[in-house]
């Protein structure tokens, strides 16, 4: 048996490790992949079970009763999940519009114009990601309270936007930088004004990257917890806040259903991200 496998492994030549026959390596890879699959999907499956469990008491391995009772509760017209979902999406949309409005010009300038403090400016946008956010949220909540922005959608959008800007600016800048300059030059040479050139050549070419950055900002806002926790109270309840309150109140079903709602856009984006964020743009990030 081992002889045939050894013979089978031989044609792989120098590239195969001689220590292990081929089948045992395939088996090892298979086992490792299976373990990884459990590590990734096990927790997700557990969440899924909780979302459809109507009764699940220790020490049962699976819920005693499955059902949609809690889904009805979550989606009831008077239920606050729908309202929170609406609030969350509205805040995320506003955050995207606001972030891109300031990030696209900044990204273009950083990619194309010779700025003396360029790397310093790029680093400045990194600040909100590279510095623990808690002190910022804690104190901005205080400031917003004094100027009447605490507990308002505007206040939450501003907090989300300042945190999402690094992604927006860096990705926008990378998207612009990955465009071949000669295309813009060609447009300029045949008489296009800078604005026309930007609108008809640069912007369409950068669009996939810009869409990616918009989705990043949207998701980050949708999922944001800590900033909303401090700035949004008591009037702005986003989906993550609702989930947190349900979980802390011991209502695992409601918490799991809300978590599932938050998972849908996250996983959807994960599946398509590479369509928007090509390797050439990724390679320019932070350059």
């Amino acid at each position: 048996m081992s002889a045939t496998h050894a013979a089978g492994a031989a044609p792989m030549g120098a590239s195969a490790s001689p220590a292990l026959p081929r089948w045992s390596r395939v088996l090892a890879v298979g086992v490792l992949l299976a373990l990884l699959a459990f590590a990734i999907f096990g927790p997700l499956a557990n969440l899924f079970l909780w979302a459809f469990a109507e009764k699940w008491y220790f020490p049962n391995k699976l819920p005693q009763e499955f059902g949609l009772k809690f889904w009805e509760q979550v989606f009831a017209p008077r239920g606050n999940a729908i309202a929170s979902l609406g609030t969350s999406i509205w805040i995320a949309l506003l955050t995207v519009v606001f972030s891109l409005a300031v990030a696209v010009p900044a990204g273009y300038a950083l990619a194309r114009l010779r700025l003396r403090w360029r790397s310093l400016i790029l680093l400045a946008f990194l600040l909100p990601q590279a510095v623990p956010n808690l002190p910022v949220y804690v104190n901005i909540a205080r400031v917003f309270y004094e100027i009447g922005l605490a507990g308002t959608v505007t206040g939450v959008v501003l907090v989300h936007a300042s945190h999402g800007l690094v992604l927006a600016v860096w990705i926008a800048s990378a998207a612009f930088a990955s465009i071949d300059v000669s295309l813009e030059e060609a447009a300029r040479n045949i008489g296009a004004s800078p604005w026309t050139c930007f609108r008809t050549v640069t912007l369409p070419l950068a669009a996939p990257g810009l869409i990616a950055s918009a989705i990043f900002v949207f998701l980050e806002s949708l999922d944001e917890f800590t900033g909303t926790y401090f700035v949004g109270v008591p009037d702005v309840t986003t989906l993550p806040l609702l989930m947190f309150n349900a979980s802390m109140g011991g209502n695992y079903q409601i918490a799991s259903i809300t978590a599932l709602l938050l998972l849908v856009p996250s996983i959807g984006f994960m599946l398509v991200v590479e369509r928007f964020l090509k390797a050439d743009v990724l390679a320019m990030v932070g350059r």
Binding site: A103, A106, A109, L113, L115, I121, L158, S162, L165, V169
Partner: peptide, 30 residues
């Protein structure tokens, strides 16, 4: 255009300024 560097300096900073202002006001200040 990328090669029209002369005089582009202040325009570049003007384009970056709003984004930097957001960071300054809502991040650096707190």
């Amino acid at each position: 255009n990328a090669r029209e560097e002369a005089g582009a300096g202040w325009r570049g900073y003007a384009l970056v300024a709003p984004a930097l202002a957001v960071i300054a006001l809502f991040f650096v200040l707190p």
